[in-house]
Amino acid sequence: MSKQWMFDEKADFLAKLRELVDGGVDPHDLETMTPFPVHEADHILHTRTSRLRFFTLAGTLTGLIAGFAFTIFTVMDWPLITGGKPLISLPPFLVIAFELTILLGGILSFVGFLALARLPSVKNVLQPPKEYGNRFVIQQRGEE
């Protein structure tokens, strides 16, 4: 049986949350819904740091390596001398690699976010659940 508490004030919401956790409720059974992120709730629920950072790291590293690899490959594939500069011109390639680092870092972070937050939630789009508006909500999953 699941239980639900709704609050209009953030302080009340936090007090209840603390009470529940101190009362021995497993934090994994508790779900909150708030109009904005409430960091104190994270503390109370002893949550693990988001794993998003691995996506970001993967993205930026891929971008960096791909930037240099791609540019060096193209220049070896079609070696043309321009302006007397050496074929493998690292300063310009660094610019490209830098941009790709940011680009792939951003894209992969976004993809990671969608994955981790389980969005888009097709179920919720098609059949929107109850809206709580600006209330702070705690839901406890009960055992069935």
Binding site: W78, L80, I81, T82, G83, G84, K85
Partner: peptide
Amino acid sequence: CENAPCEAVCPVYATYH
């Protein structure tokens, strides 16, 4: 020019040495 300023800045390699 051997170090042609024009070649280095063409984005599509329309000019090269």
